[in-house]
Structures are given as structure tokens and as C-alpha cells.
Design a binder for these strands. Structure first.
Lengths: 332, 332
DNA sequence: GTGAAAGCGCTAACAA
DNA sequence: TTGTTAGCGCTTTCAC
């Protein structure tokens, strides 16, 4: 029923090897026979079986992508970056959601390796020791996208989270604020705790402002918790907010406005993400551009280098960030 | 280097068949030998090769997903629904973006069939005749998610787009509006043109209001074009808007407010989608709930039935919708 | 430039 | 309950 390479060979009076050559674009085929074979392929509607090819060649031209949650716009953006570059290099993608659950991550890794993917792009807020161990002994190259492994054992692409956060907080300090709140994502995430929070603390310190833990609120990155954070913080009367993502920033703005404060006149806000939401907020958000798409794209590009065994110049790549100034801060 | 089923067999003093049996949970294995085999598997770190398995069994336990654009939150939501159910049934997903480009769709379909996926979930605003032809002759089951094929040749899951749109417009009519604008997505999409626009027209007609093409604006579903639509429509002074998605609705609201109109006092708006944006808008959007996640989940569930050759009760499933009343309309 | 033949690692009869 | 033996459909030496 399904037509195989053997059928084509028979029909074209050549060997399987020759059919394989024309299918794979091997140049060692006389134009005339190539043409003949192509004709038969067309007639028979032959479609190469990638599974058989994968078994024989030990290459599947598919890569695994493990991310927390595709329905979250940040990860979706990342995924698109990955997919675009994958397509460019003729790879397909097996996409899985881990929900940041470590067991699921471990098991997903196992499944993908079982499926013989040629490489893996992985994203998670926390890379456990166990996960790291498995990654290091993986027979297949892995790159971390927007995820920190401080041992630098695994390739990764990130931005300078510390620098970005420091700059944001410094901007608020420079605008004269003394009480600057930090509405953070989960502190279980290394990026939030060891980079953003640290930068927040040190930027304050460098400006002679003592760190006040009451001004820091840990949230789950959602709009609702952004709103709640304002209630929590209100008693301490912060005059500026540094917020971990755009969705929470919008929550913060709405809560502030409900309590009669005006942004940016009474309270300034700097967000972190710069998704398309930033322009859809009123006032539009000043936000640190976190280039998710690019991180995905560069991760995938880096992965192709590993898969082709090309030389790697830098195993840990750091992409630039920038601050997009809009209306939630006063112009300097 | 890589350990195969053969290595395990040798080490455990059993045949490959027995190892295969324990790996696949076949009950016809004496507990003692099962235990022995499991032990060797553990020791050797044996990991079954899914590609070889796929070749031998003609099942890959992976399904293809072809959607327009994963970075668009609607499709991301759909994808999550698909993935969750796929995971539940132990399938993995190969995810590809088509950007609604017909050639890409055709080629993606071809690639996935080549990769021997066990099934495909497909989404696109327009299913061309050529695509339909290929789908019908596909050796692998396909289900359309949130996509219309009027020949009913291919399985699909949708909502009652016409009914939903009709109800929305009727609500606006009932609130006394005579000049109701329709800010539509691309009219190349059957859903927009033959269902929503038609419902809009007929709901108006049924209320004795003549259709005025000036009140209909075709957009690309983006925030910016939502804003622009308002400028285009302003001369005709609509007092109510029916808008094709949440992002455009927010654009409409912002443009309206910039021009001094108040929502819902001066102008009422009903959106279509009810994503999490709907609650993040001010005023919060009254929106027709378009259950993307469910459509994805049900599509995948339907696909599993085809893949298992279960009996299908209904090939075209229609999911319920509802109207979520919030602040962009006046309460009745 | 082309063909023969040996696998790739596994499943699935069929026997025993 | 277990083993033997063909494949699955292709790539890849190695000859010619």
C-alpha cells in the first residue's frame, strides 16, 4: 500500500541506492537517471519515510523544546523564535510544557532522548542539580534558553538580568524616589532572586537607600497578584514600582488608579518584558525589553552549531537589553 | 556505545523478545524474569529507541500540530489544550507555524506525514480545495480545530460562530442601538465572512436595520488596526461596536477614549474571544467566550479516537459558547 | 555512476 | 512463558 524506496527502484530499473541518492540530492547520479527516478517518484507518489531514515542515519532532524507553558505569552514568543530558526535549518520541533515541574522536566527530557531528537532547547526558572546532571550526560546537545546554570556546564543564552534590573532601579532612584517597591516574580527563580532582587538591593544601596524588605512582594507573575501587591504595599507608600513583567505592571497600574493615584504623576513604574501588552496599557509601560524571540532564535542557532559539530565561540551567550521609555515614568 | 535491547537481552540471559515484552508491559512474562530484566535495564541505563520502535510498529506516538502562529495568544491557548490531552494519552507533539500561508501548510502536512505522525490537528482560517484534497487522501487521521470545512469531509471541532455573533449583535440591538459597527478580522476567513459578518447582517435585518457597509471595517486582528478602525468609522458615528477579538477591542476603547467618548456610557462594545486580556482592559470587556483551550483539547481527544479506531459519534463537533458580561456594555 | 548487501534497534508473528 | 526469525524502509560502505 505505502510505496517504498524499493518500489521506486524497481519501477525505475535502478537500485535502492540510486533512488536514495536522488532523494538526498547526492550529486553522483547521472542527470538522465536522476530524471527517470524523479519521474517515477512523482508517478508513484513516493514519500520518504523519515522514521526509517532516522533509524538508518541516526539523525531525526527534529529537536525537542521543553518550556514551562506555551499559553504564557513569554514562552510562546520564545517558542516562535526557536521554531523560526529551526525551520530555517530544516528541523522540526517537538514541543512540551513542563509547568516548571521538575519531575515532568526530567521525564520530558527522557522522552525526547528516547525519541532520538538531534538536540534540545530547554527553559526553566530553576535548573535542579539532578536536571543538570542529566543534561551533562545527555548524548544529545542541549541549550538553555533564558535559564541560568551557574556552573556553566550547559550552553545557554540569556541577557544581563542583573544589569537590566540595576539600570531600571537606578533610573527610579535618579528620578528622586526613595521608596521604591519591587513586585517580583517567584523568588524560587534564580533570575528573580539572585539577579533582579540583588540588583534592586544594590542599586538602592549604591544610592544610599537602605533595603526594606517590606517593599518587596513576591508574586506569581499574574495580573491579579500585581493588583494585590499594591494593596500589600500601600501602607508603606512607595512612590515608584519596579515590576517583574508587563502583566503584573498592568495590575499594579489598575490598582493604583483605583486607589486614586496617578501614573506617572504620583507613582512611577518600570516594567520588565516589553511585550506587546506594554503598548496596550494606559499609560503605556516603560519597560525593560526582554528579547524572548531573540533568545529563542539564538538558542536554536547555537544548537544547530552543536548539532553540526561546528566550533562554538561562546558557550554562554548574553544578548543585549534596552529600556523602552514610555509613559509610566516621567521623561528625564 | 548506546545500549540496545540486544545488550539487555544478553546481559539478562533472555531473548530480545522478552526484553521487549517487559519494556512494553506485556503481562506474559514471569515476574522473576521481569524483575531480572528490569534490573539489567537499570544497570545498563537502557533507553528504548523510539525511532526503531516506530519503524517496527508503524506507530510513532507523536501527532502533528499545524497552527498559524504560536506567538499569537489565541493559537497558544489552543496549542495548550491540544498538548494537555496529547500528554494524557502519551503522545508528543510536533508543532509548526504556517502563518496561514497555503504553500507552507501544504508542505508542513507533507513533512508531518513523512515523519509518520499518528495524527494531525490542523488550524487555519481558510482550508483551500487543494489542502482539503490532500487531507482527504491522507493516510493519517486529521482533525480541524476551530476551522471550517463546509464539505464536512474532514473531522472538526468548532463553536456556533453564527449563533454567537448573532447573539452579540442582537444584544446591542436590544440595547437600542441603530448604528452598530463591526470591526472584523480578515474577510478572507470563512468564519469572519460567512458566519460572523452574515450573523451581523441578519441580526440587524431582523431588527429592521439596514445593512450599511460603511459600518464594517476589515482589520488584521491587531491592536493598532483596532484603533485605526475607530478613525475610519468615526464619521458615521456608530454608538456600538461588535469587535472580532479582545486585542482589537482594547484598541477600539483606547481610540474612543482619546476622542472623548466614554465606554459604555457613550459607546458600547462587545468583543469576541474572552482571553485574559478581557479582564485586563478598562473597562473590562464584555466578550463572547471563544473556548480555544477546549477546542484544542476536544480536537485532540477526537483525534485519539480516530487513531485508536474507536467509533466516532459525531465527526463535526460544536462546542458551546457563552457571553461574558462585563463593563463595556451597559447592564440590562 | 551505479549496485549489492549489511545493518540501524525494535516489534510481532510463529514456534516451542 | 519464552525464543527464533523476519521484517519495518532507509542509509551507507564497499565493490565494480
Amino acid at each position: 500500500m505505502t510505496v517504498t524506496i524499493y518500489d521506486v527502484a524497481r519501477e525505475a530499473n535502478v537500485s535502492m541506492a540510486t533512488v536514495s541518492r536522488v532523494v538526498n540530492g547526492n550529486q553522483n547520479v547521472k542527470p538522465a537517471t536522476r530524471k527517470k527516478v524523479l519521474k517515477v517518484i512523482e508517478e508513484l507518489g513516493y514519500r520518504p519515510n523519515a522514521v526509517a531514515r532516522g533509524l538508518a542515519s541516526k539523525k531525526t532532524t527534529t529537536v525537542g523544546v521543553i518550556i514551562p507553558d506555551i499559553s504564557n505569552s513569554m514562552y510562546a514568543e520564545l517558542a516562535r523564535g526557536i521554531e523560526d530558526i529551526a525551520t530555517m535549518y530544516r528541523y522540526n520541533i517537538i514541543l512540551s510544557n513542563s509547568d516548571q515541574n521538575q519531575n515532568k522536566e526530567l521525564q520530558l527530557l527522557e522522552t525526547m532522548l528516547g525519541k532520538q531528537v538531534d538536540g534540545i532547547v530547554f527553559m526553566s526558572d530553576v535548573i535542579s542539580t539532578e536536571l543538570l546532571y542529566e543534561m551533562e550526560r545527555s548524548p544529545t546537545p542541549i541549550v538553555l534558553a533564558g535559564s541560568i546554570d551557574e556552573t556553566n556546564a550547559v550552553a545557554s543564552v540569556n541577557i544581563d538580568y542583573y544589569g537590566a534590573a540595576y539600570e531600571a532601579v537606578k533610573k527610579l532612584v535618579d528620578n528622586g524616589h526613595k521608596k521604591i517597591a519591587f513586585v517580583s516574580g517567584p523568588l524560587s527563580s534564580k533570575i528573580n532572586k539572585d539577579y533582579k532582587l540583588k540588583a534592586y538591593t544594590e542599586a538602592l544601596l549604591d544610592a544610599g537607600i537602605d533595603y526594606d524588605e517590606k517593599l518587596v512582594v513576591e508574586c506569581n507573575n499574574s495580573y491579579d497578584e500585581g493588583m494585590e501587591a499594591v494593596s500589600t504595599l500601600q501602607p508603606y507608600e512607595p512612590t515608584a514600582y519596579f515590576v517583574s513583567n508587563d502583566e503584573m505592571s498592568i495590575g499594579v497600574i489598575h490598582a493604583l488608579e483605583e486607589s486614586g493615584k496617578k501614573v506617572p504623576e504620583d507613582v512611577e513604574i518600570i516594567s520588565y518584558e516589553n511585550s506587546k501588552l506594554a503598548r496596550m496599557a494606559r499609560p503605556m509601560l516603560t519597560s525593560i525589553a526582554f528579547p524572548l524571540y531573540d533568545i529563542g532564535a539564538v538558542s536554536m542557532r547555537l544548537l544547530t552549531k552543536y548539532m553540526n559539530e561546528e566550533e562554538i565561540e561562546e558557550k554562554q551567550v548574553i544578548l543585549p537589553y534596552r529600556i523602552e521609555e514610555r509613559q509610566s515614568t516621567k521623561n528625564a
